[in-house]
Deep mutational scan, measured.
Amino acid sequence: KWTITVQGEEAIKWAIKVAEARNLDYTVHIDGDQAHITIE
């Protein structure tokens, strides 16, 4: 299990796209213009 933090709307969209493309189980916690994405 690991967490990445991305900043900015484009980076958030990209990170989610990558997680979905790899069929990963993930949760997103949005904090202002940052998102913390935890991959199970």
Rank of each mutant, 00 (worst) to 15 (best):
Gly32Gln: 04
Asn23Val: 03
Gly8Arg: 02
Ala21Trp: 11
Gly32Ala: 05
Ile30Tyr: 15
Thr27Val: 11
Ala35Pro: 03
Thr3Cys: 13
Trp14Cys: 10
Lys1Gln: 10
Thr27Gly: 03
Thr27Ile: 11
Ile4Met: 06
Asp33Met: 10
Val18Trp: 15
Trp14Val: 05
Glu20Ala: 06
Ile16Met: 06
Val18Thr: 08
Trp14Arg: 08
Ala21Arg: 06
Lys13Leu: 12
Glu20Gln: 08
Trp2Leu: 07
Ile4Ser: 00
Gly32Trp: 04
Gln34Leu: 15
Val18Lys: 06
Lys13Met: 10
Ala11Phe: 08
Gln7Leu: 11
Thr5Ala: 05
Glu40Ser: 13
His36Gly: 02
Trp14Asp: 06
Ile30Leu: 11
Ala35Phe: 12
Glu20Pro: 01
Lys13Trp: 10
Trp14Leu: 09
Gly8Gln: 02
Ala21Lys: 08
Leu24Glu: 05
Thr27Met: 07
Gln34Tyr: 15
Trp14Gly: 04
Val6His: 01
Thr27Tyr: 09
Glu10Lys: 10
Lys17Arg: 11
Glu40Arg: 13
Ile16Leu: 10
Gln34Met: 14
Asn23His: 12
Asp25Thr: 14
His29Met: 13
Ala11Pro: 02
His36Thr: 14
Tyr26Trp: 08
Ile16Ser: 01
Thr38Glu: 06
Glu40Ile: 15
Glu10Ser: 08
Thr38Asn: 03
Asp31Gln: 10
Val28His: 02
Gly8Ser: 05
Arg22Asn: 15
Trp14Phe: 08
Glu9Val: 12
His29Phe: 13
Asp33Ser: 09
Ile12Asn: 01
Ile12Ser: 01
Val6Glu: 00
Asp33Tyr: 06
Ile12Trp: 05
Ala35Ser: 03
Lys13Ala: 13
Gly32Thr: 03
Leu24Asp: 04
His36Phe: 13
Thr27Gln: 07
Gly32Met: 04
Tyr26Phe: 12
Leu24Ile: 05
Ile4Ala: 02
Asn23Glu: 11
Val18Asp: 12
Ala21Tyr: 12
Gly8Trp: 05
Tyr26His: 02
Gly8Ala: 03
Ile12Pro: 01
Trp14Tyr: 08
Asp31Tyr: 10
Lys13His: 06
Val18Gln: 14
Asp31Ser: 09
Gly32Val: 03
Thr3Asn: 04
Thr3Arg: 06
Ile12Tyr: 07
Ile30Pro: 03
Asp31Gly: 03
Ile37Val: 06
Val6Leu: 08
Asp31Ala: 08
Val18Phe: 15
His36Ser: 09
Asp25Arg: 15
Val28Lys: 01
Glu20Met: 06
Val18Asn: 09
Val18Gly: 04
Thr38Met: 07
Asp33Trp: 07
Thr27Arg: 07
Ile16Asp: 01
Ile4Pro: 00
His36Lys: 10
Ala19Met: 15
Ala35Ile: 11
Lys17Phe: 11
Ile37Arg: 00
Val28Thr: 02
Asn23Cys: 13
Gly32Asn: 05
Ile4Asp: 00
Thr3Trp: 06
Asn23Lys: 12
Ile30Gln: 06
Ile37Phe: 14
Glu20Asn: 07
Ile12Lys: 04
Lys17Ile: 11
Thr38Tyr: 08
Lys13Ser: 08
His36Gln: 10
Asp33Thr: 10
Leu24Val: 06
His29Thr: 13
Glu40Phe: 15
Asp25Met: 14
Lys1Thr: 12
Trp2Thr: 04
Ala19Val: 14
